[in-house]
Computed example of a mutant assay.
Amino acid sequence: MGLHLITADTAPAVSGPAAAQEPAPRHRVAAVPVDALLDADSPRIDGQNSDRVRMLAALTSPLPPILVHRATMRVIDGMHRLKAARLRGDATIDAHFFEGGRTEAFTLAVRLNTTHGLPLSPADRTAAAQRILHARPHWSNRRIAATAGLAAGTVASIRRRSGEQNAQLNTRVGRDGRTRPLQATEGRLRASQVIAANPAASLREIAQQAGIATATAKDVRDRIRQGQDPLLPKRPAPGASSPAGPGTLPQPDSPPRPATRASAAAIGLLLPNVGKDPSLRTEAGRMLLQMLNVHSIGDEAKWLRLARSVPGHRADLLAQAARRCADHWLRLANELETRRT
């Protein structure tokens, strides 16, 4: 789920799966005394950017309302705007209020700062993920990754390094708020990795290396051969409302996806055969397949090496360029999914 800065006229209530993560700010705007507000528990390690504060202070148009945690009167989102108001001597500032706990307030602050305004640095995102993981170890890697603007594999690495692999946690809570067993998921993922490394492996070998039953290994292998995800498909919660229903918040970081999503292992096995399809032997088809092959990063270790090879003074620029490329790929994926028959 993604949340954008909400104005008084565009703050619908949240329902369905979107409500399972963090409550939305109330839509009513209030003029709050500047002196009554506490500085944010900010995910920014280096604090606010003074140049941005001065730029905002110089604007003649009204600034969008900030977001405040009602229980503590601490700013959740909008510290640059609050400092700009202080700089120009404003007595009050427009604000929305958020009802919830401190951890939920921090999580919401991270999410908002990854979707608009001055981008969080990679170090900011990593530190935020570490903090959320410590407070909510039962959250899935994908849920934390979506909040912090990271890849799920990065969160998995942070989890391993931080020692938050609590043996008592046999389940994880996903982005939709549903609880799923952890062991079965990890076993199926390990099986898909075994198959990707050795497609000719027997079911007994796959089951033994992945630590799962032979029947499960067969199901994983069959699903991969059919181009499906090795994980079992998600079932909608009974009575769940449509994500596009009235009063539902837009979800820019959760684009429409097919019911089953092929894993990296499945794609690695199937993509070479797709190139043999005569219907794709067009200029556009060949270009798309070539781009997919060129831009395929592969396993976590490979992209981690790429990230670590970038000098610090170029990291922000290249991160923004990578996100721009990711946006274009997501748009392409959305367009392709709408054309499925």
Rank of each mutant, 00 (worst) to 15 (best):
M1Q: 13
I6S: 10
I6P: 10
A11T: 06
A11Q: 03
E22N: 11
R26V: 14
V32N: 00
P33I: 04
A36C: 07
L37G: 12
L38P: 09
D41E: 00
N49Q: 15
N49G: 13
R52Y: 00
V53K: 02
L63G: 03
L67R: 07
H69M: 00
R70M: 00
T72Q: 06
T72F: 04
M73T: 10
I76Y: 05
G78E: 00
L82V: 03
A84R: 06
A85F: 07
A85I: 04
T92G: 02
F98H: 04
F98T: 00
L108A: 02
R111H: 15
L112N: 00
G117M: 05
P119I: 07
A127F: 10
R143C: 12
I144P: 10
A148M: 05
A151P: 06
A152H: 06
V155K: 01
R160Q: 12
R160A: 12
N166F: 15
G174Y: 05
G177P: 00
L182E: 12
Q183E: 15
E186V: 04
G187K: 04
G187F: 06
L189N: 03
L189M: 09
A200W: 06
Q208Y: 07
T214I: 08
I224E: 01
R225W: 09
Q226G: 03
D229R: 04
D229A: 07
A237P: 06
A237M: 11
P243T: 13
P246T: 05
P246K: 09
T248F: 04
S254T: 13
P255C: 03
P256A: 11
R261Y: 03
L270M: 15
P278G: 06
S279K: 11
L288Q: 02
L292M: 11
N293M: 07
A301T: 02
A307F: 02
R308V: 00
P311E: 02
R314D: 01
A319Y: 02
A321K: 12
R323M: 00
C325I: 09
L330P: 07
E335M: 11
E337G: 06
T341A: 15
